[in-house]
């Protein structure tokens, strides 16, 4: 019942993973960095699903659920920080060039 073999699945996940990784490295805009991180985390989740499917266990998918929730938490906190960051900018508190 497994249409796709494990190796192909892993290859897809790693391609997705590396696109996210390159996204983080190249893009200067912090929002886009968060997006790329999301991609990377989902890629890892995908790999888990494939692994789970390989062994016919549900663990992989459960793991994917957890990954989704934590990724969401991270992005939320990230966005909150960014908003606070720009509010400070309006009150012209000096900014270190971290990007």
């Amino acid at each position: 019942m497994i249409a796709i073999s494990l190796n192909t699945g892993l290859i897809i996940a790693s391609i997705m993973f590396f696109t996210g990784l390159i996204g983080v490295m190249i893009r200067k805009n912090i929002m886009f960095m968060l997006i790329s991180i999301e991609i990377m985390l989902n890629a890892a989740g995908l790999a888990f699903v494939f692994a789970g499917a390989q062994h016919g266990q549900a663990d992989g998918q459960i793991m994917f659920l957890f990954i989704l929730t934590t990724a969401a938490a991270e992005v939320a906190v990230g966005l909150a920080l960014i908003i606070q960051f720009y509010q400070n900018l309006k009150r012209s508190i000096p900014m270190l060039p971290i990007i």
Partner: peptide, 13 residues
């Protein structure tokens, strides 16, 4: 942690 997860998935696989 993305790397960590990806590693875990490979090991799990």
């Amino acid at each position: 942690s993305a790397f960590l997860l990806f590693g875990m998935s490979l090991v799990y696989s």
